[in-house]
Design a protein around this nucleic acid. Structure first.
Lengths: 201, 201
DNA sequence: CGACGAGTTGAAGGCAGTCAATGCTTGTGG
DNA sequence: CCACAAGCATTGACTGCCTTCAACTCGTCG
């Protein structure tokens, strides 16, 4: 709906791809740089607020990062990789961006805005399921079961507006109740989720 | 920063302006229609979620509404006026939208995304002050004291993720403590806020 | 007048936050 | 190689705040 499922596997001609690993920063607010398009992965955006960095949005495969540099000459947000991320340059100049590209970016930006807000609605169970579902959609298109590498609990807590302790307790509870399946090492814990689970309704 | 302070008082040549009053719906998700630019006022966007309409974002003076119609042929969100609102047609076709216009829309969309998320962070006092501050910025540019017509408590509650009761209690408390000044009739209650108040830090 | 919607206020309970202690893993320096 | 520190996650106990449920007021409109 909001993006083409094939986008992240169809290479753009002659474009160079940059890679980031989970936890790495892609760029910081205030810096100058290019605009990027996410080939695959999930990125967290932060605005420098009064109390340090505060969550400012999500970006998934197909979304555009840092389009504001074409207008302002610098990034307005900091970007951090929640999963391993592949990005490619998007448009080097305002003229290089076609109306269609821009409209698509604008449209999916609004979708992502609603997604981000949903992370702060409802019970802790609902919020975390929502986050994992969004990340799953950004990683495994069309599949029913998605395997997601958990971000750090601190990241989850900041995005959902909960505390680390509550996040930890909630994930344990979801795991015990079978809504979730934990795997992987303790450092890079993986989660299998059912994207059609009743938790997301 | 994110929009020109003069935008809403400089009439575009030959464009027609449409008016909506507080509480009115501008359009609904799924309908076909134009893309609009807000001349003045504050608009709430909603996505149809599992449990009816759920808050999906804010839009202020200078922001673009319904740009996705140019791409998808229909609105993705419903729009409701939180204050009296004036809007004008923005771009009738994808070709009519210049890269500069689109980049500006994209940039402010991201700003607004962070603003919307801030409405769901922190204590009830902080959330409501944040909302009133954002609305004040959208109405009274550059002034220190802004006079804002309060949205319905139900709207405030849904946007901040609180209950109407908590919103009512919080506003009363802010009023008693002097952070806020209530005025106007009970139906269209007005609020004077100090945009540089310590509450917003 | 009576019904309805919107807002206010009170009382009680639940649930998330806070504080604290522990375990696990990784990295560092003796 | 071992001891130690630091970061992250987990678990427990307790407090406090927001939600929930309820009753009531006020204003508007039929």
């Amino acid at each position: 709906m909001e993006f083409d499922p094939d986008l992240e596997i169809r290479p753009a001609s002659g474009s160079r791809v940059t890679t980031f690993t989970r936890g790495e920063d892609l760029f910081h607010a205030g810096e100058a740089g290019l605009a990027w398009r996410i080939r695959s992965g999930v990125v967290r955006l932060d605005r420098l607020g009064e109390t340090g960095r505060e969550f400012g949005g999500l970006a998934l495969a197909g979304d555009v990062l840092g389009a504001e540099t074409l207008l302002l000459g610098q990034y307005s947000f900091s970007a951090r990789a929640l999963t391993d991320v592949f990005i490619e340059p998007w448009a080097s100049s305002p003229e290089a961006a076609t109306p269609h590209m821009l409209l698509q970016a604008l449209s999916s930006s609004k979708e992502r805005q609603a997604d981000s807000l949903a992370l702060r609605s409802g019970t802790p169970e609902h919020r975390i399921s929502q986050l994992l579902a969004v990340m799953g959609r950004g990683l495994a298109h069309g599949q029913r079961i998605a395997r997601v590498v958990l971000p750090q609990l601190r990241d989850i807590a900041e995005m959902t507006g909960l505390t680390v302790e509550t996040v930890s307790r909630t994930i344990s509870r979801l795991n015990r109740s079978g809504s979730l399946e934990l795997g992987g090492t303790l450092r890079a814990k993986q989660v299998s989720i059912d994207l059609q689970s009743s938790l997301l309704t």
